[in-house]
Design a protein around this nucleic acid. Structure first.
Lengths: 205, 205
DNA sequence: CCTACCGATCGGTAGG
DNA sequence: CCTACCGATCGGTAGG
């Protein structure tokens, strides 16, 4: 099915909205600024999204879908075990740059903006994180099954620490302008992995 | 010198403003909401702070000073080396709770809000982080000098990874409601430290 | 998808 | 520190 005119317009609006939200956060995305950016009237936008909150939810969903295409899908083609886990980490780390968005990662900013604002946007941000966390844990479990990581490795703990490294990298690169941010993040990840590496002999899993 | 009436009022205003900013971010702090919270008129607030931006900067400074009192000052009384580094990490980790503020850490939210908004607030957020980073690196260097950490340990890398653990803990506790967040963060820290522990014989530094 | 409009709130100022 | 006000913008609606 080719998309209808309305669907194309909606997608174009969401692309613009995502650009704004990546720079200013979902709370910084206003109907007026989006109207300017798209050349549409405010009421024209309301024809596509019933309310600002619906728009914000649609933008977050749009970002999550893009994220899935750029991170999760390609990674599933990499062989199971450490190679896939490493690929997942690298794509996760580079996503904010590779996405082509002018600002930072909207999932990260939404996590901070909405950790104190109950409602559907917070719920969606939590759901996105749980999805990413589940995929990361699965990749860790497969690496254990493949005999690359030690049997006693806790997937939840590894996923937690991987998130931390990504967040620190995001912070150092974007706020502090640290050119070494990516290198530091990769170093941290490799040390995390090597600390949980399977003993050589147990590789026959 | 006892503080003047004006200074007392100013401090009370900043306490209220910090509460608002911890929940909604510095961008969510408006003159009108602060007027309601303090029972003052908007123009009364302008008598203390010339502009909203000046207010935001004063709030950030206020938070940084509180942070110094709650984290940096007590830690300096702990013996140099691993004990001090560990105390620094724990107070850093617990600060957002211990501060008594209703929301999250304002330094963390400011880092996300302003990584894309050039100006004095961004500059202040960067300066705050550099200050914390310098203190953390110093604590790492002292732990190396005391023979607790291996001589080849990179203080910048340790500080980077400690930031990551704190950020992941903040995220899991506040957004995901993970009761194990603090435990996971402590586990990650102890593993980070043990990975860089000095070999037993070199402890005579 | 538009024009034209609503009440509320924004940061800020005049004048006291 | 106040009242009283400014123009701009907020999210949203009526009516087409």
């Amino acid at each position: 099915m080719t998309p209808t005119k309305g669907e194309q317009t909606r997608a174009a609006i969401l692309d613009e909205a995502l650009k704004i939200a990546s720079r200013l956060g979902l709370e910084g995305l206003t109907i007026g600024s989006l109207a300017d950016a798209t050349g549409m009237s405010k009421s024209g936008l309301f024809a596509h999204f019933g309310s600002r909150e619906d728009l914000q939810l649609a933008v977050l969903d749009h970002a999550a879908q893009l994220y899935g295409e750029k991170v999760f899908v390609p990674v599933l083609k990499i062989e199971r075990g450490l190679p896939r886990l490493r690929a997942l980490f690298e794509r996760w780390l580079d996503w904010a740059l590779e996405s082509g968005l002018p600002g930072g990662c909207i999932m990260i900013s939404a996590a901070i903006e909405y950790d104190d604002r109950p409602g559907p946007i917070r719920d969606a941000a939590i759901a996105n994180q749980h999805r990413g966390n589940a995929i990361t844990k699965k990749a860790v479990r497969l690496a254990i099954e493949e005999g690359h990581l030690a049997p006693g490795t806790d997937p939840e703990q590894i996923s937690f620490e991987m998130l931390g490294i990504v967040l620190a990298g995001h912070n150092h690169r974007r706020l502090l302008g640290d050119k070494e941010a990516r290198k530091r993040a990769l170093t941290a990840f490799e040390e995390l992995i090597s600390r949980h590496a399977a003993p050589a002999r147990s590789r026959a899993a």
